[in-house]
Amino acid sequence: MILLVLSVILVLVVAGCASVVWAARGGPPWTRAVAKATMAAGELVRASGRSTGNRNRSGDSSTLGGD
């Protein structure tokens, strides 16, 4: 089941990337809409990674398993 979910996510990511490239080359209007949605999703993922990443990379040795 998890393999199916990951496969669907992979297909959506590849299709989104292809639509971004196609829209940049002047594709049909629907590719621009899909590309805009893909870029927005990418920004959300990047922002969520930034917010959790800053807490984990604070340089505190206690979070790194130091003594």
Rank of each mutant, 00 (worst) to 15 (best):
L3E: 09
L4H: 13
L4C: 07
L6T: 05
I9K: 06
V11C: 05
V11Q: 04
L12D: 00
V13I: 04
G16I: 00
C17N: 06
C17R: 08
A18C: 12
A18Y: 14
S19V: 01
V20I: 14
V21C: 08
A23W: 00
A23Y: 00
A24M: 12
P28K: 06
P29I: 02
W30Q: 03
W30M: 03
R32G: 14
R32A: 09
A33G: 10
A33V: 06
A33M: 09
V34D: 00
A35I: 01
A35N: 01
K36L: 15
A40D: 09
A41E: 01
A41W: 09
G42T: 02
E43Y: 08
E43K: 10
V45I: 12
V45E: 03
V45H: 06
R46C: 10
A47D: 09
S48N: 04
G49E: 06
G49D: 03
G49P: 03
S51D: 15
S51V: 13
S51T: 15
N54T: 13
R55C: 09
N56G: 08
S58Q: 05
S58P: 00
S58V: 02
G59L: 03
G59A: 12
D60E: 08
D60C: 06
S61D: 09
S61E: 14
S62H: 08
T63N: 06
T63S: 05
T63R: 12
L64N: 11
G65H: 02
G66I: 11
G66Q: 13
D67C: 05
